[in-house]
């Protein structure tokens, strides 16, 4: 089931066919079948391969506690996002949250986020964003979500033959630098991958993009290349990140990179604004910016078309 021997069947290199169903402003729905992650829109094809699909959901950057003009009510948009999750006809196996659960790491913010996200009634695998480590001892996140994790909160687990790795790249950041994994975590990663078959599909998730998206705004991970080096022998690697509050995708060799939208507020495209700060749009346009993106799967087409459909307007 997890073998990817058939991945080149019918001329389809599914390692490279990595698209997503983006519930804009809500989450990204993923499914893995035949050992290869793909969007839910391709489930029909996955079934044709007699694989048991694994469907999971990604949400990111809830920023609970943020109350500035870009979105004075982020809890409401988070609840809307969770509403979308609950309404899915195919129930995901679990959710991942790629960080910035809260805006200022306050107890109430963590509580409010918990209460909203738990309404989805799904297991949630978290990694922290820099906004989740702002309390003096950086213990609120760890006490809630970091139990059993290593170091600042990294860990791995397996589901349906897929190996999931949650990494932390938001601590001990160096002046002038980008996101940071650090030696200890990288050594752990190397060991974690040791002995695994190269045909094991790998999903890596972390807050800041592991690849360098736009260094001028700090959008990248300083030592991300070392992590990717450990992953290069694997046939199918999917890297899911948040932090930049917009969808971005890149495929490099066997590695597909994807960033998810925020449930709280949009950020500008690289270089299109003086800073990466929250992007204020007219109030009645907020949900149209967050919107909903649906995936259209056209039979016979290898790539899926992502169609953005606004939540409103």
């Amino acid at each position: 089931m997890t073998s990817d021997d058939d991945r080149n069947g019918a001329g389809i290199n599914r390692r490279k066919v990595l698209e997503c169903m983006t519930w804009a402003g809500t989450g990204v729905l993923w499914t893995i079948a035949g050992g290869v992650p793909r969007s839910l829109g391709i489930v029909g094809e996955a079934r044709a391969q007699a694989a048991t699909p694994l469907t999971f959901l990604q949400i990111s950057d809830s920023h609970v506690g943020f109350d500035k003009p870009a979105n004075p009510n982020v809890l409401s948009t988070l609840n809307e996002a969770i509403g979308k999750v609950k309404a899915l006809t195919v129930k995901p196996a679990f959710m991942i949250h790629t960080g910035d659960i809260t805006h200022l790491s306050k107890v109430k913010e963590f509580d409010d986020a918990d209460q909203a996200i738990s309404q989805a009634r799904l297991d949630v695998h978290y990694v922290p964003g820099e906004h989740d480590f702002l309390d003096d001892e950086q213990k609120l996140y760890r006490e809630r979500y970091g139990r059993g994790a290593k170091g600042a909160g990294w860990y791995s687990f397996d589901a349906n033959g897929v190996h999931f790795i949650g990494l932390v790249n938001v601590v001990d950041l160096k002046a002038g630098g980008l996101g940071n994994l650090g030696n200890e975590q990288l050594e752990w990663l190397e060991n974690d991958l040791k002995g695994r078959s190269a045909s094991t599909p790998i999903v890596v998730f972390a807050h800041i993009p592991l690849w360098v998206v736009y260094p001028e705004w700090g959008w990248g991970t300083e030592d991300g290349a070392r992590a990717l080096d450990y992953l290069k022998r694997f046939g199918s690697v999917t890297v899911l990140n948040g932090h930049i509050h917009q969808v971005m995708q890149k495929v490099e060799g066997n590695v597909a990179f994807h960033t998810a939208r925020s449930t709280a507020f949009p950020q500008p495209a690289p270089g299109t604004a003086p800073s990466p700060g929250p992007m204020k749009v007219e109030d009645n346009r907020l949900r149209s910016v967050l919107g909903i993106a649906t995936i259209t799967f056209a039979p016979g087409q290898q790539r899926l078309a992502i169609v953005d459909t606004p939540l409103q307007g």
């Binding site: 820099e130 002038g176 700090g218």
Partner: peptide, 12 residues
């Protein structure tokens, strides 16, 4: 005295 933002370290 050099300094930076520990959350956004590209700010120096």
């Amino acid at each position: 005295y050099e300094y930076f933002c520990s959350l956004h370290p590209h700010m120096t």
